[in-house]
Design a protein around this nucleic acid. Sequence first.
DNA 1: CTACTAATGAAGCGCTCCTTCGTAAGTGTG
DNA 2: CACACTTACGAAGGAGCGCTTCATTAGTAG
Lengths: 389, 389
Amino acid sequence: MANVRGGDLSRLRQLNALAAIRALREAGPLTLTALAERTGLSRPSTKEVVDELAGLGWVEEVPPSPGTMGRPARRYRFRADCGHLVGVDIGGHNIRAALSDLDGEILAETRQPVRPDDPLEERLAAIERAVSGCLALSGRAVSDLWLVAAGTTGVVSPEGRVQFSAAIPAWSGLDLAGELARMFPCEVLVENDSRLAALAEARRGAALGARDVVFLHVGRRMGTGLIIDGKVHRGFGAAAGEIVMLPEARWYDAPDHLNACAVVPPGTPEEDAAGFTLAAARDGDPAALAAVGRYVDDLAVGTAAMVLLLDPQVVVLGGGFSRSADVLLGPLRERLERACLRMPEVRASALGDECVVMGAIDYAVDHLDRHLFTPDAGPSLPLPQPAGR
Amino acid sequence: MANVRGGDLSRLRQLNALAAIRALREAGPLTLTALAERTGLSRPSTKEVVDELAGLGWVEEVPPSPGTMGRPARRYRFRADCGHLVGVDIGGHNIRAALSDLDGEILAETRQPVRPDDPLEERLAAIERAVSGCLALSGRAVSDLWLVAAGTTGVVSPEGRVQFSAAIPAWSGLDLAGELARMFPCEVLVENDSRLAALAEARRGAALGARDVVFLHVGRRMGTGLIIDGKVHRGFGAAAGEIVMLPEARWYDAPDHLNACAVVPPGTPEEDAAGFTLAAARDGDPAALAAVGRYVDDLAVGTAAMVLLLDPQVVVLGGGFSRSADVLLGPLRERLERACLRMPEVRASALGDECVVMGAIDYAVDHLDRHLFTPDAGPSLPLPQPAGR
DNA sequence: CTACTAATGAAGCGCTCCTTCGTAAGTGTG
DNA sequence: CACACTTACGAAGGAGCGCTTCATTAGTAG
């Protein structure tokens, strides 16, 4: 049982202000009458609340909608642009950054190519370049940032330290949250990239609206992200989703089936091999199809374990190989049908390469919602003084 | 974003009344001053709130604690006895029922032996007998019941229908929630028994305080229950936790290792066989120890899958075989150490056979808390008119 | 019996929301 | 272009809730 605190009149006002903000964020610009209806307050009270919020910079008036009967009503909107969020995707070959407003609307995006064996400093510098790029593109200063959320490969500790990363050797052991906190004068969040990808698919992608989602990162490396009851599931030690480590789930070596296919030209670097097999399978090549079959056989084992255990509404196929989702989805569904008690929907990622950045943004938005716009949780309004414009 | 409703003064009073109730439930009898401190209200306001709650029957005065300096303060307590809950455990061989007050404090318990192949009517009658027994023992009438929560083996649909039960043949397809609703004039909840057992262990058993818990039901049949973020995880179609169905998890046939051991006397009925092996293993019999080793080998595979996937704080070993936890825990820990990224605590059930009934009670308490004692969720106070005494 | 301690109860104040009503600012029609 | 109609605005008056203050009461300690 969490909060036992009661409150006085000012608390009631705060509650009503929060309700007004939530209503405006959900339904866009609203007239006083419409807002009063949604919040359940009377019009005069609504007016007072809105005036107060306008004074604080959270809300502003927009021109009335023309062509209506009667006296035109003043309309107000939530100023999603009074603060900004940055999401970063730290991958082996690319650093992506995106800047959004408080509603998670993307305002700018950048990409910085890097190499897996780049030294630590170079990669950190690339992160800084990527974010600076976003700020420049959108005409904002670093002081406009309220929150930076980063997703990275590897196991991330609850405190934001990278415990171990197979994809980025120099990354293991790094206090990523600390480095980012040194870089940016605002709060910093760090999460595992697959978990953020899962969140993005659940919030705006292939699993829109679902509260229980399993995200499969299929590619040269395998990974998973779980959304449970609408929230990212981290686990007690932030190590959830690491089913790849279980030999019996047959995930770790699964991509080898695609690499070892006869259709791959000799001498192809390992990182490009699977692409040939998947392409050939799409064209109907029997050897490639067989290889894909063996790959999906393995993929389905770990996936079935997750589906049986969690009974998600949707399974989303993401990661590099999901570009070949047309080749993979059918066989995967077929095997899951046989193995699962209740067949979930199985869909391809709708966000592709943007998945992790989007997820980082959504994660930041969630954090804000919870800490700023939810009663009984944290300091509540009014905190980060929204800029005067 | 859930609730967008604001509220007026009466809402504030409701919030404060709820805060007072929660404080009293958490900390037992409190004086006005103590309650005022906890709720953050002033003393006069607290008085008014308490008076109102006393009028409604939610709260009552208790004698002041003697031997204090100054004028003795009046003390108040939450009347946990103003409503009652029943939990039922519907197993193959036993029907257990328990009656508790609104705080989940057990007031009476009964057990009715049944047989797996009993006809439907007989089993339903046994449920009714078990509950009547509790009512008689505690001197309550069926009209005092606010909520009945039942746990049953098998897959239970979100609506409370038993989809399939291997342990109780006649049970499959039954609209259990409907049957119970016909039996009792109050709200009825139905859940899978392993999930309720998991909840009990997380609330008052071996995993007390943990928010992410994996409960393993080890016995003649295998099952699991998941507590995620403090709540029972059902999954979208209420089919979560059915990892037994996955051949690769090697759970379904795992008990056979114990049944097939040489130490089991020939002619032993299958349901008693494992007991001999576990007992012999405790005495150090090499053949039995080897059989237990093979059993745990299999058990550990599915368990490792769950631990890797969910990263729980605690894994609880429950079910019939958990009476031999001393024999099982060591080998299981050893195998998990090797397989898992972060080793969870592995503990034996603290509640034993009472696990499911307790869980049913806890589930009912949770339901009440959410619907009655939490702001912004459901009808809120005052609803089921608490009895006058 | 007196001093001290701590809770009680009543009175007065301020804040927030509500309802009501007259006024203002548009559109549509003759 | 004036009028009726529609819809929103703004001010005024009233009720409910929580706060602070202070005299009073009911105990214990010496």
